[in-house]
Amino acid sequence: MKSIAEIEEAIIADFSFLDDWADKYNLLMDLGKELSPFPDEFKTEQYRIQGCQSKVWLKSHLSQDKKVVLEADSDALISKGLVALLVKVLNNQTPEDILHAPLNFIKEIGLDSHLSPNRANGLASMLKQIRMEAKVYAQQTASAQ
């Protein structure tokens, strides 16, 4: 299993070939299409991330080997691409690694404008939600030991 930093490097490399903003957004939307199908039954308020102008759903669980498994979807292509990026980097990592990852790749690939505190931009909310869930798993794991 690759580390978060290794996956980030690979994503930065993919994006660095692209000079044009349109190609970057096309790649982002392609990443969204690679997400595993998200069952409609979970597209509910319970799994919806607040703070995005589009609808974004996130569902997670802790696997047998104590890794955080992430599933996500969105009704907008760009939001789906953004959440897919986070899933690609953070899926199947330990709660601690997720909590401590600085995630510099967002800035490196030029998508940091999506982290602005405007409520229309959901990337910050997505990241906050994933970290919140990772924190719960980290506490569960710690208290079980």
Partner: peptide, 20 residues
């Protein structure tokens, strides 16, 4: 097409509209 996607890409063209 989702309004959010439309607004995000139009912004790249320098065009400011409201979406939502």
């Amino acid at each position: 097409i989702h309004p959010y996607d439309m607004g995000t890409i139009l912004d790249q063209y320098g065009i400011a509209i409201r979406t939502g």
